[in-house]
């Protein structure tokens, strides 16, 4: 059973230190050696432990500022954890508005770069290239630099890369809240299609409908703590009570 776990976090925490003066330069640092900064510590995550199994779809809910986005960034390996232990087995991809893209590159180049970062070989990207373009509906702009794209085209392209290339573990942060209605419909259709089968997905959403429909286990977060992790109905109930 243990080998089925693709993500294991034990006692992970994250504290951000926010200072009023930005001491990014050596000069500032020299002049403030004997002048302590006014610092504020924000505990975004407090001693959190969880396991996620291969092929599982789990959700995280909680009010704004409860630490959901920080949690997925730490779990995805983008932010380092201040304490504890985190083991990720496979490539990860964090997606909110889209995957990272370079505005100076064309759509074609961005597809190859993103696909490669997500662990695909060039030949594998060749095979799904047309599918990505068709899904994103940008057939006439394949060799156009994406800095000339509209925000809708950008969103479609990055979503299409994410859906078609994918990583072993996908972190989807409020993807249903961006884009126009057509885009949102597309996002939902993807979830209803075969795409989600066999993929490990961590979902963050304020839509209880989405969470209830797709997640096997749901975590309820409050003030940086994982208050509950388990049955979706119970987690949603706790979330709704917190919103009262």
């Amino acid at each position: 059973m243990e080998s089925n776990i693709v993500l294991k976090a034990k006692n992970i925490s994250k504290t951000f230190t926010v200072s009023e003066d930005s001491h990014n330069t050596v000069k500032h640092r020299l002049f403030s050696l004997f002048n302590p900064l006014r610092k504020k510590r924000v505990e975004a995550l407090k001693m959190l432990s969880l396991d996620i199994e291969k092929g599982e779809c789990v959700g995280f809910i909680g009010r704004n500022g409860c630490g959901k986005s920080t949690l997925v960034k730490v779990l995805a390996g983008v932010y380092p954890s201040d304490s504890g232990y985190l083991k990720i087995d496979g490539s990860t991809m964090l997606m909110n508005l889209g995957v990272g893209m370079n505005y100076e590159l064309t759509a074609r180049e961005n597809i190859y770069v993103s696909g490669s970062i997500l662990g695909l070989k060039i030949k594998e990207i060749d095979r799904i290239f047309e599918k990505i373009i068709a899904f994103a509906e940008i057939e006439n702009f394949v060799d156009t630099k994406i800095k000339f794209f509209s925000s809708g085209m950008m969103a479609r392209l990055s979503f299409s890369i994410a859906v078609n290339a994918g990583a072993d573990i996908m972190f989807l942060d409020e993807i249903f809240a961006v884009g126009d209605m057509k885009f949102q419909e597309k996002a939902v259709k993807v979830f209803e299609g075969s795409w989600i089968e066999g993929k490990t997905v961590v979902l963050i959403s304020h839509s209880m409908e989405v969470i209830q429909k797709y997640c096997k286990r749901v975590g309820f977060m409050k003030n940086g703590e994982l208050v509950y992790f388990g049955d979706p109905d119970k987690a949603i109930e706790m979330y709704l009570a917190d919103n009262q």
């Binding site: 995957v99 990272g100 770069v113 997500l118």
Partner: peptide, 10 residues
């Protein structure tokens, strides 16, 4: 090159 690593564990 932040775009290369801010969404993945590259």
């Amino acid at each position: 090159k932040k775009y290369l690593y801010e969404y993945t564990n590259m």
